[in-house]
Design a protein around this nucleic acid. Structure first.
Lengths: 346, 346
DNA sequence: ATTGGCACTCAGCGGATACGAGTGCCAGGC
DNA sequence: GCCTGGCACTCGTATCCGCTGAGTGCCAAT
């Protein structure tokens, strides 16, 4: 069992270690923090913390370093986040002012986050899976080339150029357009995609009555809708890793891999359990299943009109959790507000 | 003046150094390469090469290492590129088979290149500046939200969701569409963009006669066209850098920076002068103006229907030029062929 | 429960030494 | 005139050694 003072000692160790990047000893603790006790007492507490595997000594007779478990307890018992400076607050609002569209907003958010924290920033797109299709547009470019455009109520637009081998006459376009629209407009992306799948899976006899061109176009629409269902991620700040590679036991390779393999990070971010404030952290070896053992990821939920998504930060296990959590939360809140306004304006 | 054998010695030094990553001495040269002379003779040649600043000794009495200038001479006097292995050849064709569209093709190309060479791969999009606008489509989503779509003859499509504050009635859409089309269809991206600029710069009296909605939409079209004129780049393989950071005098930071700052790399790639085969290389300090001094970039032109563009590789100055140049050339040729076929099919 | 004291441990540092790969130069040979 | 073997010399790297100092664990006293 860890005592009250034991927790304070742990906190001091984490803070000092994050600051100095050096194992912290009992003496330096009493010097830097106003504990009312002597170094020897702290030593006793540290021995207990070591029993609990919250801290560890890199070598006999050296200062102590928090273990992953220690960081975990530290984060869970965080008294308070470090509030943002006024400069940081104003940076958020100026940086995110007047976004052109969602892409632009999230691109700026990710740059803002990496600038505020110096860490790799991750911004997850809100999922479009539950968005509703409002428009399907069909444009005939020439005899066989058609342009299919899909718009959802969340403002996402996607288009796809496709070739219809059997060719399409200009006169047929309105009919095809209406048929496609009947298939998916007003429906959610998910259900639209399912209907198209059903269409292709239907009995040959039934399918024979359907125009081949329609079938081909519907297939394209289906593919596009499936793309809507995939989560997306934008990132920034990878360059900052190079400066601090010794923070990652020498190799930033796993981190760069993860950055290129967006899928891993997406899964990781989705699986993290958030607290009541929407904040979450995954520390060190807790990420082992995702190929990361020397890195921590913290994330904060934000609310878009469509649903929740997350923004996150990835950095060394030994990161400044109070500041980073606080920055992530502040940006997430601001983002939610912007997206709500946006929703109301429509 | 460098003798014939001097050149052979330089070649041996570059090859061995790339292989072993260690300064190469006169003795090891006569061992590994079938020179018909003794180590002392090689030493004399090396002294000459050092006078020409093609090689240098890291410290007195150590083996020699090629200088940037040495690599340059090596590349310029490259007798022949190392031919690709059959496995590599077949990898190219299977990897690039049946691309869905240009984006897909280039995304695959970049992954292929990084896989073939283990370097960071760069693929420049062909410039759309000289493409011609074939369609402008206008879709009314609701009273104020309009969707503008632009298609070029090169198959690139782009769309933009925009709000027209004064609102647009459904009945007005065909007129507006026709007016926009008159402005830009059939014209090149460049000239279309210029006409729209002229429209906005025209005298107030004249502009007063133009519908406000049209002006707003034309502005959006103009912005999109400008975006067509910007070059784009896709990259892959950044993760491979981490393993080899000591190849870059310790810091891969400038490289990661360059990767995040795509603009720099784009400029660098555009400014490189290609030889008659379409190959080019920029070595070490030759890239100083772009913030890179420990890296080399090699590039190979490829022909898209629209015009030339480049694919490239970025790696340590001490890279395997014969193999990498050869890989880049092979992929570029294959890419050109695919894009030509594509053109013919239309 | 806390404290001062004390013996002990061990990483890091600087200096000394040995080693060896590689060079430059020279005199002699083809 | 070019090539070669030989030789003295240089200097980076590895190794050992002893020292220092920060930090610990434990104990007896408060």
């Amino acid at each position: 069992m860890v005592t009250e003072r034991g927790l304070k000692v742990l906190r001091a160790i984490v803070q000092d270690y994050v600051d100095t990047h050096e194992p912290v000893g009992s003496k330096s603790i009493v010097e830097r923090h106003a504990f009312g006790v002597s170094a020897a007492t702290i030593r006793n507490d540290m021995a207990l913390l070591e029993d609990e595997e919250l801290i560890t000594a890199p070598h006999t007779s050296s200062g102590r370093v928090p273990t992953d478990k220690g960081y975990r307890v530290f984060v869970d018992h965080l008294a308070e986040l470090r509030p943002l400076s006024p400069a940081q607050r104003s940076a958020i609002s100026t940086f995110l002012a007047d976004p052109a569209d969602l892409d632009d907003l999230l691109a700026r958010t990710v740059r803002l986050l990496t600038q505020l924290t110096g860490q790799v920033a991750l911004v997850q797109y809100p999922s479009f899976a539950s968005a509703n299709v409002t428009h399907v547009e069909l444009v005939r470019l020439d005899h066989i080339r058609m342009l299919v455009i899909i718009v959802t109520d969340t403002g996402r637009v996607s288009q796809r150029l496709t070739a219809v081998p059997q060719g399409v006459e200009e006169d047929d376009v309105p009919v095809l357009r209406a048929q496609l629209a009947a298939l998916v407009t007003g429906r959610s992306v998910r259900s639209g995609s399912e209907r198209i799948e059903a269409l292709h899976a239907s009995a040959p006899a039934e399918r024979a009555r359907i125009d081949d061109a329609l079938l081909a176009l519907a297939a394209v629409v289906g593919e596009e809708l499936d793309e809507f269902r995939q989560d997306r991620l934008v990132m920034a700040g990878a360059a900052t890793l190079a400066k601090r590679e010794h923070d990652f036991r020498g190799s930033i390779h796993p981190l760069l891999e993860a950055i290129e393999e967006q899928v891993t990070l997406l899964r990781l971010m989705s699986e993290m359990a958030a607290d009541d404030q929407g904040l979450s952290a995954s520390i060190g070896r807790e990420n082992e299943a995702f190929g990361l053992t020397e890195a921590s990821i913290i994330a904060s939920d934000y609310d878009a009109a469509i649903g929740r998504a997350r923004i996150g930060l990835m950095g060394p296990t030994r990161m400044d959790y109070p500041s980073n959590l606080s920055a992530a939360r502040a940006v997430a809140r601001y983002l939610s507000r912007l997206l709500d306004e946006d929703e109301n304006r429509r």
